[in-house]
Nucleic acid binder design. Structure first.
Lengths: 237, 237
DNA sequence: TCCGAATTGCTTGTATGCAAGAAGGTATAC
DNA sequence: GTATACCTTCTTGCATACAAGCAATTCGGA
């Protein structure tokens, strides 16, 4: 009985079909992260649709998604605008991130099986010569470290929310890594955190993590205004 | 010159006119919570649009929003379906909720000013005769307690995410409150937690909160299958 | 020159039209 | 009776058309 029926619905690979709405979302988000769209900027759906060479429909989908995520604001029958930077909000996001990661680290120290932890260690416990120097790459790698830490802890929903938080502060965190010594420090701190986790030192791991994130938060607080202004100037040049 | 002008424009209430998309969202969500739409059910945009007496556009907005929130799934050119219950996912949500509330309670115990805490106490530290008995009301009040606890802690973003988590598990949590003794227990436990917070007993407050939420989680785990089945049967009757 | 009111253009929200593709039923070959 | 291929119907994704309302602009008047 050759049931070559295509009833293998569940096996059907989720074809990488990027819908227009999806690409619009990615494009606009990239514009935000690259400061092509600056906080306070106003624009209309028609404008974006023309620029992306598609109709308003997928653009609207993308815009509303970004609005719900906190990046944009819509004004009824007036237009769209980029949410201005709210530093209180960024501080809150940093604290939220810390909360989620502390919980994950605590759990990690208590878990019997911690699949993927070794791989993470292999990536970070490396000699100084093997370290990434590029700002953009370092930023991405740093994000990956924290996200994997949470992922290994095994709570899918925590990981989902943590990812959202991470994305939300990416725009400001990236500015942090433009400084070389911050990259060095990140490697050091990540290494220490990992070692503490592997030795199941809950207190120590949490203390290190906390100071690591608080340091990052403080750095961002210092440089933000200046860097943002630079970014804006560069844009206008 | 009969000024029969209907220029009562200024009297027009500045009602925050709920858009069709918004009402569609609320309606569909209500259908989900009332088990009119059951896990696994399939339907099309046209169906919903006809039922809600509007076009597909606002319905689509609502459906996509619910899809991103985890309630629905969309199958390309096939139709929509209600996400089946994933109990692992609900457990994860409960743990996430606990993480956020523990962090909030800890912060509450350390904060100098805690505006709103007294009001909360006035609501919960009441004699047994003044207590709500209705299942639906009790459920809503319970939600409000936890959300206000987080809100008073002052982190807006934590509150936003916590709210989302709360909404996500509402559908299952409500089943818990159909049992009278669960309502009683909730009053007792909330009272204890509040008293501990007011006396700034961090450890105690967290311990109470943890056992409160874990108990709730356990209760839900016990009754879920049966209740869901009941709800489904009642629907089909 | 200054001020006010009508108007016109532009904006979003909603409805509708169209096309590619999937699912299931039906007819046909064997 | 069984399996296969076609075909009809229905689905979403996207494009376009229309409606209601805000805001700037322009025109008129003093």
């Amino acid at each position: 009985m050759m049931t070559r029926t295509s009833t293998a619905m569940q096996e059907v690979v989720i074809a990488p079909e990027p819908s227009l709405a999806e690409t619009a979302y990615a494009q606009i988000k990239a514009s935000l992260f690259d400061f092509e769209l600056l906080p306070g900027d106003r624009f209309s759906e028609t404008e974006v649709a023309a620029r992306l060479k598609m109709s308003r429909t997928p653009v609207r989908d993308a815009l509303y998604r970004l609005e719900r995520e906190g990046y944009l604001r819509v004004h009824l029958r007036v237009g769209w605008s980029v949410r201005p930077f709210d530093f209180k909000s960024f501080e809150d996001f940093y604290d939220l991130r810390l909360i989620l990661e502390e919980a994950s680290v605590t759990k990690l120290c208590e878990m019997p099986e911690r699949e993927g932890l070794d791989a993470l260690a292999a990536q970070w416990l490396v000699p100084a010569t093997d370290r990434i120097a590029d700002s953009r790459d370092a930023s991405a790698l740093d994000e990956a470290f924290h996200m994997q830490l949470v992922a290994i802890a095994g709570n899918v929903e925590v990981a989902r929310f943590h990812r959202e938080v991470t994305e939300r502060i990416r725009i400001i965190r990236r500015l942090d890594f433009t400084q070389r010594h911050r990259i060095e420090a990140t490697y050091e701190e990540h290494g220490k955190i990992l070692r503490a986790i592997m030795r199941r030192r809950v207190e120590e791991a949490n203390r290190l993590l906390r100071s690591h994130i608080i340091a990052s938060k403080a750095e961002v607080r210092k440089i933000t205004m200046h860097r943002l202004y630079t970014a804006r100037s560069a844009q206008h040049a």
